[in-house]
C-alpha cells in the first residue's frame, strides 16, 4: 500500500456518452417493425398493470348476478362471467399478477443462473463438474410436477408458483452463461488481465460476466413467454393464484365450464395469454438480433 499513487480528480463520465451509446440500438430497433410491435404490446401491458384502477371500468371482484354472462358489448368490452364480473376489468387487473409473476421469477432466476454458470465456466475443474451435475439434476425436474409438489407441501398460491417456476428455470440460464464463460476465459483480453494481476473476482465480474449478460438477457426474455404459460397452467389447475384473484389461467379454468354457450368467458383471458406470450417471444427474438452479433441477420 506504500506505492499508493495520489489521483487527481476522478474522471466523471458525461451523461450524453451513455445516451449516444444507446442511439445505435434505437436506430436498429426502428428497422424491426415486428419487434417494435412486441415492445409496444409489452409497454401497453405495463401501463395497464400500473394504472389498473384508473383504466378498469368496474371493480374486478364485485359480483352482479343480474348481469351474468353478458356478451361483449360497449358497456362490457369483453363481456361478463358467471358472477357478472366485468371480464375486461379482470383482465386489466390480471396483468398485474402476470407482470409481478414474471418479474419475480426473472429477478430470482437471472442472477442465480448467471452466477452459477459464470463461476462454473471460469473456475472449471471439480467446481464445474459439481455445479453442472447439480444443474443437470434440477434440469430433470418438470416444473409443473415440482409446482404440484410444492403446492401440496406449502399450500397453493402465487408465491408457491413463483418459487416452483424459479427452481426449475435457472438451469437453462446457467448452462448458457457457462458456455459463454468457457469461450471468454480463453480470450487474449482475459490473458492480458491475468498478466496485470487482476484477481479472480475482478476477472469474473468485470471481464467475464459482462460478456455473458447479453445472451442471458435474451434467454430470460424468451423464457418469460414460458413463465406466463406455466403460471397460467398452474392457475388453470387451481395451484397458482387463488380465487377471486383475476389470474388469467384461473379465469380460463372457470370459463371452461360455459365454453359452448358463453365462449367469451374462456376465450378473452386465452387471447390475453396468447398476445402477451407472443409479444415476449417477439421482443426476445429482436433483442437477440440486437445484442448477439452471432445471430445477425443476413
Amino acid at each position: 500500500m506504500s506505492a499508493q499513487i495520489p489521483s487527481s480528480e476522478p474522471v466523471t463520465r458525461p451523461r450524453s456518452a451513455i445516451l449516444s451509446a444507446l442511439a445505435p440500438i434505437w436506430e436498429k430497433l426502428s428497422r424491426e417493425p415486428v419487434g417494435l410491435c412486441g415492445f409496444f404490446v409489452l409497454f401497453l401491458l405495463l401501463v395497464l398493470a400500473l394504472f389498473a384502477p384508473l383504466i378498469a371500468p368496474y371493480d374486478p371482484a364485485v359480483q352482479n348476478l343480474q348481469a351474468a354472462f353478458l356478451p361483449p358489448s360497449l358497456s362490457h368490452l369483453a363481456g361478463t362471467d358467471e358472477f357478472g364480473r366485468d371480464i375486461f376489468s379482470r383482465l386489466v387487473y390480471g396483468a398485474r399478477i402476470t407482470i409481478s409473476t414474471i418479474m419475480s421469477v426473472t429477478l430470482i432466476v437471472g442472477p442465480i443462473g448467471l452466477i452459477v454458470g459464470v463461476v462454473s465456466g471460469f473456475v472449471g475443474g471439480r467446481t464445474d463438474a459439481i455445479l453442472m451435475r447439480f444443474t443437470d439434476i434440477v434440469l430433470s425436474f418438470p416444473s409443473l410436477i415440482l409446482a404440484l409438489a410444492f403446492a401440496a407441501a406449502l399450500g397453493a398460491g402465487l408465491g408457491t408458483a413463483v418459487i416452483a417456476i424459479s427452481l426449475t428455470s435457472w438451469p437453462a440460464i446457467a448452462r448458457l452463461a457457462r458456455a459463454e464463460a468457457l469461450i471468454v476465459r480463453n480470450t487474449d483480453y482475459v490473458a492480458a488481465a491475468r498478466l496485470y494481476g487482476a484477481s479472480p473476482m475482478r476477472l469474473l465480474f468485470l471481464y467475464i460476466a459482462p460478456m455473458c449478460i447479453p445472451s442471458v438477457v435474451v434467454r430470460l426474455t424468451l423464457n418469460m413467454a414460458g413463465i406466463i404459460l406455466t403460471a397460467a397452467s398452474l392457475g388453470f389447475l387451481g395451484l397458482g393464484a387463488q380465487p377471486p384473484a383475476p389470474e388469467w389461467g384461473a379465469m380460463i379454468s372457470s370459463g371452461r365450464k360455459f365454453m359452448l354457450d358463453h365462449w367469451w368467458v374462456a376465450v378473452m383471458p386465452g387471447l390475453a395469454i396468447l398476445i402477451t406470450s407472443l409479444a415476449f417471444n417477439l421482443v426476445g427474438d429482436t433483442l437477440r438480433d440486437l445484442l448477439d452479433p452471432r445471430h445477425a441477420r443476413s
Binding site: 492480458a192 488481465a193 496485470y196 487482476a198 468485470l206
Partner: peptide
Amino acid sequence: GSIHPRHRISRVLAEPIRAMDRG
C-alpha cells in the same frame, strides 16, 4: 481479440493500475 470489447479505452488503460491497487 486482446482488448475487452465492452470496456471503454479509459477503462482498458486504467485497469492495470486498478487491478494492482495502485490508485
